[in-house]
Design a protein around this nucleic acid. Structure first.
Length: 260
DNA sequence: ATGACTGATGGAATCAGA
């Protein structure tokens, strides 16, 4: 089973690029973030024509997440991260496909830091950590996939010293990510490529992609039950170099679920 | 430290992104 995560930065303007990528790579599941579209503007029919069933949680202008599954309907388990009934931002959706629970998340950016946006980021992170613990306790095979807006280590930033005070790289943010990992999650891309510089995001500014001035902020975390099934983890970086690209590249894992 | 680029909204200029 191949599961991808892709922050598409606007499904309205990115639909041709999304369809082209789906057609080429045919992932079994795809988690999308930053739909930037209200619920009724999601291109359900176009995706169905491409062979994908979808669930999504839209929002006007910002945020928005979706889970696609090829040839079958994702079974929605949850929409919205528990822990704050006042949180109206569409950043979390969860579905089961073939016995695997997949959480699609878009963790808040948090800039500028410090400030209320950074506080929201850290609070959201705490809610994620609490919910992730509950998922692990359930014993279900789980993948946490999405745009975490965290570079876990200095290896994940083209120029760490420039980012130390940024919400994506501040000590509090990295510490929260490490606490999440310490529950027992496997950072799939890092596990398959230890010590390697791999990025999933390149800024639109200053020709960042051509300079390879990137960040690794899109992650797929595997529960212990799934870690042994991991066969590959890669970034489709060429997608970032195409016409009208998202600033993120699709990131994916291959799991061997035979004989579970 | 700052700015540069892009999408959504709304129909210009501003916000947000990372």
């Amino acid at each position: 089973m191949r599961i991808a995560t892709f922050n598409i930065n606007g499904i309205g303007s990115r639909l041709p690029a999304l369809l082209a990528w789906l057609e080429e790579t045919r992932p079994d599941m795809a988690c999308l973030q930053e739909l930037k579209a209200p619920q009724e503007k999601f291109p359900e029919a176009a995706l169905r024509d491409a062979g994908y069933h979808a669930i999504w949680h839209g929002q006007k202008s910002w945020n928005g997440v979706a889970i696609l599954a090829r040839g079958q309907a994702p079974q929605e388990v949850r929409r919205g991260l528990p822990g704050d009934d006042e949180d109206g931002q569409s950043r979390y959706i969860e579905a089961a496909v073939d016995g695997v629970l997949v959480a699609c998340l878009y963790l808040p950016n948090g800039n500028p830091a410090p400030g209320p946006k950074f506080d929201y980021k850290l609070q959201w992170f705490e809610r994620l950590i609490a919910h992730a613990a509950a998922l692990l306790e359930s014993g279900t095979p789980v993948v946490l996939a999405g745009d975490f807006n965290v570079m876990p280590t200095e290896l994940d930033v083209y120029k760490p010293e420039r980012w130390v005070n940024d919400a994506l790289f501040r000590p509090e943010t990295r510490a929260a990510f490490q606490r999440l990992l310490a529950q027992g999650w496997c950072d799939a891309l890092r596990h398959m490529h230890p010590g390697e510089r791999i990025y999933t995001f390149w800024d639109y500014f200053r020709n960042a992609y051509a300079r390879d001035a990137g960040l690794r902020i899109d992650h797929l975390l595997l529960s212990p039950a799934l870690a042994g099934a991991l066969r590959a983890a890669e970034v489709d970086r060429d997608v970032r170099g195409r016409d009208k690209p998202s600033d993120h590249a699709p990131t994916w894992i291959e799991l061997d679920l035979a004989g579970r």
